[in-house]
Write a protein that binds this DNA or RNA. Structure first.
Length: 481
RNA sequence: GGUCUCGUCGUCUAGCGGUCUAGGACUCCUGGUUCUCAUCCAGGCAAUCGCGGGUUCGAAUCCCGCCGAGAUCACCA
């Protein structure tokens, strides 16, 4: 069976986590059908006032980052071009004329102020405002500059939603909705139906906010003689606080902002796909291919899901390690380019790769590199308080510390082979020779080398820093006590 | 207000009449991995399944009512 899905955003700004699932799920469904699946990207830019320059590029960038490629749409073209609604006027007008001919649409000359008056009248009487109760008696020939309205014939509707199940609604909300605006552009209500039909869309996947206007769409399908596509309502993603759906006003960040913050696209896709969907097993980590393979509409949750950044961070950590372990250190290193501290710029790839290899399992995001690795590239500022306030070292006198440092320097200076294994052996010997606990000796050396709140295993840190740097830092600390 | 939808640990969820004294994941807590932080491992806290009726030998699962939350009522999408 042929599966045609689409993501149809309007170019009014960036894509945020609250709405990107309406791109992910259609993508997964289409790809699951393999050769028989088509994913369309359609830009719904019929509101010229809200159009934002560059927004289409932002949308494309987001989809590309997540690896959600489309088969038809901007850039790639396709048999149903154009894919910008603003360029499809003729098509909408053609369908609109059909409706006029069948008596299901009329040109509405009523001035906006009059409509506003009707609205006020209704709210004063506390009754719902329905335009069909105010249908003008005389309607002119439809021509540019006059809005075109649907002529509703309200009746109860029942339909099936792939996520919500069997639904029904009474005639109450069906109304004479605007089909073509005064400016000649179609409304979403009309345009999406025409386009989906023209483009052969089989699954209309969109946010649950369209649920309540579905009867109006159903009426339109009928009047247009169109077969209903499968309807798939995607429940809202809720803001971290409160019960409202996540939107820009709640501080919903753009998807690509997470890329800049060091989130991996694999983690983002994984998290978002599993927010409100699961395959019924206990698996948590999914590759894109696994998602494509396992995805199914009937496992989409019907209630809203709260956005939880903590879990995103967990996914990111999982993916960081997974990429390193399974695709190799270079694969992860390739992602780190923009995230090294300023001080790393003069160092070569080989050195940074070594740093990455001992620090990667401590990263939550790639941008942690910036704060966590600085001492590998620049000598830290000596902060003796860090030594004296350390919980293991505060019991030791300054002369003891000085003596320990000297013994360490001596031991390491004599070490022939500056490798992790032999360094560990030397450290172990030092433990025996000084009679100190690991907590004392190792804390001392670790802090003296890094003056950082934490660092990788001591022998690895020493190995990567190298003999010269390690010894010069230890000496500098010994001198300043 | 009308219409529509949703309701299992704090959060994401499994569950489609018995295997549920409700399973997994995140968070949090404890212990272990020669210092730290993190990873990893082991363990723990945490939902009487919104509430109340019913159907049934048996209900988180089916039915009804209620309550709570949300969405939507634009010449925006």
């Amino acid at each position: 069976m042929k599966i045609v899905t689409r993501f149809a955003p309007s170019p009014t700004g960036y894509i945020h986590i609250g709405n990107v699932r309406s791109a992910i799920y259609p993508y997964l469904l289409a790809r699951q059908a393999g050769e028989n699946g088509i994913m369309i990207l359609r830009i719904e830019d019929t509101d010229r006032a809200r159009h934002v320059e560059g927004a289409t590029e932002l949308i494309e960038d987001t989809l590309e980052w997540l690896g959600l490629n489309w088969d038809e749409g901007p850039i790639v073209g396709g048999p149903h071009r154009p894919y910008f609604q603003s360029e499809r006027q003729e098509i909408y007008h053609r369908w609109a004329r059909k409706l006029i001919e069948s008596g299901r649409a009329y040109a509405d000359p009523t001035p906006p102020e009059q409509i506003e008056a009707y609205r006020k009248e209704c709210s004063a009487k506390k009754i719902p405002f329905l335009y069909r109760n105010f249908r003008p008696k005389d309607t002119p020939e439809w021509q540019p500059g006059i809005p075109l309205r649907f002529k509703a014939e309200p009746r109860p509707y029942t339909w099936h939603d792939e996520v919500m199940g069997d639904l029904s609604a009474g005639p109450e909300i069906q109304d004479d909705i605007i089909l073509i605006k005064r400016d000649g552009y179609p409304t979403y209500n009309f345009a999406h139906i025409v386009d989906d039909a023209e483009m052969g869309v089989t699954h209309v996947m969109r946010g649950a906010e369209y649920l309540s206007s579905t009867p109006n769409y159903l009426a339109l399908y009928d009047a247009l003689g169109l077969e209903r596509p499968k309807l798939v309502s995607l429940p809202h993603i809720l803001a971290p606080q409160g019960n409202k759906k996540l939107g820009k006003r709640d501080g919903a960040k753009s998807v690509t902002e997470y890329r800049d913050d060091g989130i991996l696209s694999e983690a983002m896709l994984n998290y978002l796909a599993c927010l409100g969907w699961n395959d019924g097993t206990e698996q948590e980590i999914y590759t894109k291919d696994e998602l494509i393979q396992r995805f199914s509409l009937d496992h989409i949750q019907s209630s809203g899901a709260r956005y939880d950044e903590t879990k995103l961070l967990w996914y990111n950590g999982q993916w960081l390690r997974r990429i390193y372990d399974e695709q190799g250190p270079e694969a992860l290193y390739a992602r780190t380019t923009r995230f090294w501290p300023e001080s790393a710029s003069s160092y070569d790839d080989a050195y940074k790769l070594k740093v990455l290899s001992i620090i990667y399992d401590r990263l939550k995001t790639l941008s942690d590199l910036r704060v966590m690795t600085d001492y590998f590239f620049a000598d830290p500022v000596i902060d003796l308080d860090m030594l004296t306030n350390n919980k293991f070292l505060k019991k030791l006198s300054e002369s003891t510390i000085e003596e320990l440092l000297k013994q360490t320097i001596q031991k390491l200076t004599d070490l022939k082979d500056w490798q992790a294994d032999s360094l560990q052996q030397a450290l172990n010997e030092l433990l025996l020779e000084t009679g100190r606990k690991p907590a004392e000796l190792f804390s001392l050396i670790r802090i003296a080398l890094s003056f950082a709140p934490f660092s990788p295993a001591l022998n690895l840190t020493l190995e990567v820093l190298g003999r010269d740097t390690s010894l010069s830092r230890l000496n500098a600390v010994a001198r300043s006590i």
